[in-house]
């Protein structure tokens, strides 16, 4: 009878291979985390789009103009009617805060990390003299996990 024994090194190497093989299985637990991240960004995008839609209602009709794709970045973006300046606790425009690294680092970092942008697709429709509307497609895009994601919201802006 010839019984072959297992050496200690073989056991250790076998354990190591087992652990390495378990890692992909265990990464499944990360998928729940990714779902939360996705919903965070989607929720943010929904609020963004809603904000734009409300601002569109307050803007003069002729000022509602197209912002073509790929869209305007929100962080470090120019002054527009929607996001910049974002707030102003002072009594003059000199105190206005914009979404920049210096003034709103937290918000800026979040927006830059996912490269949030917004675009507007504007179509003018004249039903009759004095009866005009704009069909505005609000497109919010961002990057997540190497993918380009998009949320769209359509709104109709009357000329009142």
């Amino acid at each position: 009878m010839n019984r072959r024994a297992v050496s200690f090194v073989e056991i250790v190497i076998a354990l190591g291979i087992l652990i390495v093989c378990m890692v992909p299985v265990l990464t499944m637990f990360g998928s729940a985390g990714r779902a939360v991240l996705k919903s965070q960004n989607l929720g943010f995008a929904i609020g963004f789009a809603h904000r734009i839609s409300q601002h569109l209602l307050a803007m003069p009709f002729e000022s509602v103009t197209e912002v073509p794709l790929p869209g305007q970045p929100v962080a470090d973006g120019p002054d527009d009617e929607f996001f910049n300046p974002v707030s102003n606790f002072g009594t003059t425009g000199a105190n206005a805060l914009r979404i920049t690294k210096a003034q709103t680092p937290d918000l800026w970092a979040f927006l830059r990390k996912y490269e949030f942008r917004y675009a507007l697709i504007v179509n003018n429709v004249n039903f009759a003299a004095g009866d005009r509307m704009k069909c505005v497609g609000i497109i919010i895009t961002w990057k997540e996990g190497g993918k380009d994601l998009l949320y769209k919201l359509y709104t109709y802006v009357p000329d009142i």
Partner: peptide
């Protein structure tokens, strides 16, 4: 193209024009 965050559908420029 983009991926629609709600429907997971692939969104091309042509689709956006169509949706418009």
């Amino acid at each position: 193209y983009w991926t629609d965050a709600v429907s997971k559908r692939r969104i091309t420029h042509e689709f956006l024009a169509a949706d418009n």
